[in-house]
Simulated scan of single mutants.
Amino acid sequence: MNKDFFEERDGMKRRLLLLLKENFDLPFIRINPIKNMVWKVSTQNQDWILKGFSSLETFKRQVSFTEQLKKSGFTQIYSFHPKPFVQENKVFGLIQFIEAKKGQKVSYSHESDIRDVCFLLRKYHHATTNLSNVVKEQIPVFEQINKWKKRLIDYRYTLPLYSQNPLRSHLNYFAELGEWALDKLQNQAAFFKEEPNCIIHGDVASHNFIRDKNGQLWLIDFDLIALAPPHIDYLQLSNRVLPHLGWDVERLFSFQTLQPFKTKEAFLTALVYPTDIFREWLHFTRSHTLEQRRRWSTMEALLLKQFKERIKFSKEIMKKVKSI
């Protein structure tokens, strides 16, 4: 097989379907792409998710983790077919398909969904805190500050390449926010190492929560699990929901799960770090020229939308931090 075997092109689905039939004792009849390296595959009576993994070790770690998590009593996660298949150094695994309830896609624009996500995460963190050390030893340790340092350096490195960009002042402003936050967080590093450690999810975007046809919420996609205090997930969740809350501090801390962090200096400081801007900007700048042209309107909207609200939010948080 040539190196283009798994690329999305004519005949690819047929060949991948053939491999599935050869590697699993299941009568697959359909395969449809969902996103890069993720497909929905079906037999006559059952649906699965076929997913590519970065390594066999990663696949086995996630299988072991989800099995132990279910044994602990946390069942709102999918199961794996225990057998992977490896083709041309690519590792594929089958995952239980969870059918979402029609018209009930989880969205952070709905405060009820935010509350439900907070509740599920709280249950998840409690369960992972109590997992055995044998399980935890397989999981990498999360390094928040080092990750943010590198992201800011990478972001800063791109700015001279866009010196004529009409939004250069906005780009510089976000860099300044990142530097302010990191400077403060240097003296609060212990916050990101506090015990007890759980296994955080690491990617609490709304699309990683599915509400099934019975209304039950499920947690999916464990590619970024790591050992860390639970509040790392809550910090990321806050960054995800704030644009939907109009960057309103009081609305953010109206959620019961987040209320304990209202006076936590490190948590407040970290909220100022513009992780969403840096993440999307770096993704944008690493794209080829045609892709940048296609994505520019989306990037521009992210930089400009709610900019005044974000400035107000950042100043309010800085004032709170100074008063603590």
Rank of each mutant, 00 (worst) to 15 (best):
M318S: 07
L282Y: 01
Q104R: 13
F85D: 06
F222D: 12
Q164S: 10
L227I: 03
D183F: 00
F174G: 05
M299D: 02
F142Y: 10
L131I: 03
L69M: 06
V134P: 02
S132P: 10
N165F: 12
R279G: 04
L94G: 02
G178Q: 11
R151C: 00
F80R: 08
F253V: 01
D248K: 10
G215L: 12
K184T: 00
Y273V: 00
R9F: 00
F191E: 00
S323T: 03
V41M: 11
K102A: 06
K83N: 13
E143S: 07
H110Q: 11
K40Q: 12
A181Q: 11
H201T: 03
V63Y: 01
M1N: 10
W296Q: 10
R286D: 14
Y78I: 02
Q306S: 08
A100Y: 01
A190T: 04
Q104P: 01
I311Q: 15
E8S: 11
P274G: 09
S64A: 04
N2Y: 13
R14A: 14
L185A: 05
D248F: 14
R294K: 14
N32F: 14
E88Q: 15
Q144K: 14
V249G: 02
I98F: 05
S79I: 04
G93D: 06
S55G: 06
K101G: 15
I199S: 04
R156D: 03
Q188C: 07
T275P: 01
K308S: 11
V38R: 05
I114W: 15
Q46W: 04
T275E: 13
N187Q: 09
R310E: 14
K51M: 08
Q44H: 11
Q144N: 10
D47L: 09
L235T: 00
H125P: 15
A205M: 02
G73N: 07
A175Y: 06
F307H: 01
E99A: 10
L159D: 11
E111Y: 12
T66R: 15
L242R: 08
I95C: 10
W148F: 11
L161D: 14
V141P: 02
A181V: 00
K264Y: 09
R151W: 03
R211Q: 11
N133S: 12
